[in-house]
Structure formats: structure tokens, C-alpha cells
Design a protein around this nucleic acid. Structure first.
Length: 292
DNA sequence: CAAGTGCCTTTATC
DNA sequence: AGATAAAGGCACT
């Protein structure tokens, strides 16, 4: 199956799948192989054509956010030369619409880890607690369900390389398994309301940054503006003039952000870049990460 | 190559 | 409220 992409709706598969927003993708030759829920499929891009197997076009359109009007988004977030440069370099990078549960558990694992390590943790979890499927001569493992992880012991979870995150994965899985968070309802409410709802998981490995990542990468709240170390660096480098110098001095001196400081940077991002701040975030993040 | 630093942070404690 | 420390262990330099 294939989808013809229009010149006005660019997509770059390598940027989109390689940027570290989703952790269950691997490229073998020209093809990207992915696992989403129980589905295993492959996809490749040949110029303006997307070719894929074992999955239908509607799913692809939704998952890759092909309905996002990128030119419109670019015109709205290009507030300065920094975003402009990032867009020029990574044009076609799209925000995915991941499965919310998989996204949540990924970012609970992701705290204070680097991208290769996050992928490894998720693979370990999937191998140990997920379902095994053969496809195209490779074996793939689904992300374990909330039930599976809720029933796993923290010891078993820790053995997947989670370290102290094992407890948080266990607790978060339990709360989701018990049905205390309705992901679908999050789509219908505002960013603020949805964020508040997700933060009922606070104290169990879900803080402001994780909540914002879930809202952006799986719920489609494109105004979400996750602030991680890289975005903090971008702000210090290029946007410090938007804050009082005492504040800049304070956050420069420390490596991690207090909640109030996070909220201040987050609010700046949303106000400055507008309703598609999440896109600005992802382009700036990627640009900063690939400097040097 | 070894050892040090850093990681898409959160939580606990003072 | 706000500051500080601790937390696996892997990956990169």
C-alpha cells in the first residue's frame, strides 16, 4: 500500500522516526519497522511516496499526523531566525500520534536517560512482558499492556534496566490498569484540563515534563511545550532576553529545574510560539541536539 | 581505553 | 515556598 504525499504537506520519515519521540522504531535497510499496540508493520519513503505493509492507510495518516498542515504551522511558529534555521534543517519532521499508554510508559522510563538507553529499556520490557511476533524474518515484541506491567514485580522490572524507575512503571501501570485515567477523554478537553488529569499520576513517575510529552506525542495537544535539558539550553542561548536576568542566572547555575521554573519556561514557549508551540519545541530540540 | 560526565527528571526531605 | 540531594545504569567522550 502507498500514500502519495503532496508537496505542500511534507514528511521526512527519517527525521520523524529518528528524532527520539517514539522508541519502538528501527531501520533495517530502507525500511522502518515499527510496533504499535499489537500491530507490526514496515514503512519507507521514496521521495514523495510512502510505502507500507501490514497496516492500513488510515492508521498511517493518523499515526504520522499527516493531517497537520505543516506549512501553516511553520508560518505560525517562525517567530525568529532560530526556529527558521531548525525548520530549514528538519523540514518534514512531524509530531506523531502515538498510543497514549505506550507513550506514557515510555516517558516514565525516559526520565534522566538518553535515547539509546530508553530504546533498550523498552525493548527489554517488551521482550520480557510483551507478545512475540514474527514479521519479515525478524522477531518483534509488543509493548506490554498495563495489566502485564501491573502484575510484574519491581524486581523483574528492574532487571529490564529500569533502575529506580521500576517502582514508577509498576505504580503507573497499576493506576492505568485500574482504569483511573481515560486517555480518550483527554483528547476532548483543553490542554490545561488534560494536563491536570494526567498529573493525577504525580508521585508515581509522572511530572510536568512527562505529562507534556504524553500530551504532545500521543494526545495531539500541539500547544504542549515540554522543557527538557536541551530546550532549557536553547532558551538560555537564544531567548534569555525574555526573562529577568536574575531568573536566567538562577536556572543557569543549576542542572535541573524546579517545578515553578519549569512552568515559567513552559508558559513562555506556549505564549511565544502559540498554538503549535509543540512543533517549535521539537524542531528546536532536534536542532540543538545535532549541533556540533 | 578508562574514567568521568550526562542523560528528553522526579521525588523525598529539609 | 524553595533549595538540595539522591536515584540505575547505560552511552558517549
Amino acid at each position: 500500500m502507498e500514500i502519495q504525499l503532496s508537496n505542500f504537506y511534507p514528511l521526512d520519515l527519517d527525521f520523524t522516526l529518528g528524532c527520539g519521540q517514539a522508541f519502538k522504531w528501527n531501520k533495517h535497510g530502507e525500511w522502518w519497522y515499527g510496533v504499535v499496540k499489537e500491530k507490526v508493520f514496515k514503512i519507507r519513503q521514496v521521495d514523495n511516496k510512502l510505502e507500507f505493509e501490514n497496516v492500513d492507510a488510515d492508521f498511517i495518516k493518523d499515526y504520522f499526523g499527516l493531517h497537520d498542515n505543516l506549512p501553516k504551522i511553520f508560518s505560525q511558529i517562525t517567530k525568529d531566525r532560530h526556529v527558521e534555521a531548525a525548520i530549514k534543517k528538519f523540514k518534514g519532521l512531524r509530531i506523531l500520534r502515538q498510543n497514549p499508554w505506550e507513550c506514557l510508559i515510555s516517558y516514565v522510563c525516559a526520565t534522566y536517560k538518553n535515547i539509546p538507553a530508553i530504546k533498550q529499556m523498552l525493548l527489554n520490557l517488551s521482550k520480557k512482558f510483551g507478545d512475540k511476533t514474527a514479521f519479515n524474518g525478524y522477531y518483534f515484541y509488543t509493548v506490554p499492556t498495563p495489566a502485564k506491567l501491573a502484575k510484574a514485580s519491581t524486581k523483574e522490572l528492574a532487571e529490564c534496566g529500569l533502575g529506580y524507575r521500576a517502582r514508577y512503571v509498576s505504580e503507573t501501570a497499576t493506576i492505568i490498569y485500574e482504569g483511573n485515567v481515560d486517555f480518550e477523554s483527554l483528547r476532548k478537553t483543553s490542554y490545561e484540563e488534560a494536563r491536570k488529569e494526567l498529573l493525577t499520576l504525580r508521585g508515581h513517575g509522572v511530572g510536568l515534563k512527562v505529562a507534556d510529552c504524553v500530551l504532545l506525542f500521543s494526545i495531539g495537544k500541539l500547544e504542549a511545550f515540554p522543557v527538557d535539558v536541551w530546550i532549557k539550553r536553547v532558551i538560555l542561548k537564544h531567548y534569555a532576553n525574555h526573562f529577568p536576568s536574575e531568573f536566567i542566572r538562577k536556572i543557569s547555575a543549576k542542572k535541573s529545574l524546579a517545578n515553578s521554573e519549569y512552568e515559567r519556561l513552559n508558559l513562555f514557549g506556549r505564549r511565544y510560539f502559540g498554538e503549535y508551540a509543540g512543533y517549535a519545541q521539537e524542531y528546536l530540540y532536534q536542532f540543538e541536539r545535532t549541533q556540533r
